[in-house]
Design a protein around this nucleic acid. Structure first.
Lengths: 220, 220
DNA sequence: GGGTGTCTCCCCCGCTCGGGGGAGGCTCGT
DNA sequence: ACGAGCCTCCCCCGAGCGGGGGAGACACCC
């Protein structure tokens, strides 16, 4: 049976584009559309889509609120794929925190869009999109050069968080990181939580994967 | 017949601890102790232990030198298990390059210590730090090509374990892996435990790190 | 036939992890 | 002086994770 998708975006053009791209696939079926997050709940209840592709920025109810609402009120909720125009949109991270399963850039190529829908439908999370890559690339070797430090300041992760992430990628537990940094485990937990949240990772394993996938750390 | 072990550490306390832990096992016997690497060679010649548990940092001759010396001058040399306080101690990698068969953290739990001794005694390597690289390089892209499959057969990981590790590197939880493979979570736990054991990893995060570091999976 | 290895599933148990809160002190820029 | 951001530490709590056992079914090889 095909993957069923509900489109939620205030721009009809975007909806049409998504529909065209997705309907071109034999195994994907667009079963409905909505122009605002406020209309999502009843539609989800009625259509029971596998995936909801939802814009973050919408007039009445934004994608974050809508995501929370769906996950809170619907049992066996659909997978939620957040659509956004800009990478590093702070809304994206909020949406992921709210329980979204992945996000999608409007300017992504059709093949990537299709891929994203299939992935979340299968239950995998799209946590490590291209944006993380660019973001984390700024950290570079990130040892002591001033440019990297400056980048750290304006980027998502704080210096401390980046340091904690680095230790996570070396396989250290929270207690070990605490000992290494000479702080309490509670402090480490705070930083780890911040890292997970900012990377859209569910646990430290996914964060480490993101670190490798983004170039934050490199094998070898 | 029991596994015979020679302890080499400059701290008597550590030796006592190791002895206590290991002697508690019916199949492990501590046959001697030394306080420095310089004393190892004659002891190995006389006692012919199966395993030498050796500290890296010692006053006169460190564990690396001692490892090289033993492997160079003794025929049918014992397995060498490097003991260290810190992970990512550069000495550890050097020791493994020098020919050590595994490494052991001083803060490891007794069960882990026992496990490590048994593993190296059986000829298996505790691979997590460095040498996974060579082993797992054989898996390559490892999709369907016959050579990779053949490698899987003779290598440490079974096909199922390799598949589970692959899913672990995609950030899936045990429950998600179980759903994907259409088996019970208990089954997945068994495979995950086997993977952790074979890779010498303490948790799934370290296993994923090993997978990246070894080339089992590649970023991007 | 018997052994070996793999895959499957089960029990119990303890611990780490991560989320949910909150809070105080610090530096910095305005 | 004030707020913003960061680092630090604290509480409670549930869930997932990992260890240590064991066990049955099956295929393969000697």
């Amino acid at each position: 049976m095909p993957v069923t998708v509900l489109l939620v975006d205030d721009e009809p053009l975007v909806r049409a584009g998504l529909r065209a791209v997705l309907e071109a696939q034999p195994d994907i079926e667009v079963v409905g559309e909505a122009a605002d997050g406020a209309a999502v709940i009843p539609l989800v209840r009625r259509l029971r889509p596998d995936v909801v592709a939802m814009d973050v920025r919408m007039p009445l109810m934004d994608g974050i609120e809508a995501t929370r609402a769906v996950l809170r009120t619907v049992d066996r909720p659909p997978k939620i794929l957040v659509i956004t125009t800009f990478e590093n949109d702070e809304y994206v991270y909020e949406a992921l925190r709210a329980g979204a399963d992945g996000f999608l850039l409007k300017r992504a190529r059709p093949a990537e869009i299709v891929h994203a829908v299939r992935l979340v439908a299968e239950g995998e999370s799209l946590l490590f999109p291209a944006s993380v890559r660019q973001l984390a690339a700024e950290y570079g070797a990130g040892d002591g050069n001033p440019a990297a430090r400056a980048a750290l300041r304006r980027a998502a992760l704080t210096e401390r968080e980046a340091e904690v992430l680095r230790l996570m990628t070396r396989g250290l537990s929270n207690a070990e990181i605490a000992a290494r940094l000479v702080v309490g485990t509670e402090t480490v937990k705070s930083h780890v939580s911040a890292v997970l949240s900012k990377l859209g990772a569910r646990d430290r394993t996914q964060a480490v994967i993101a670190a490798y996938e983004s170039g934050f750390v490199a094998p070898g």
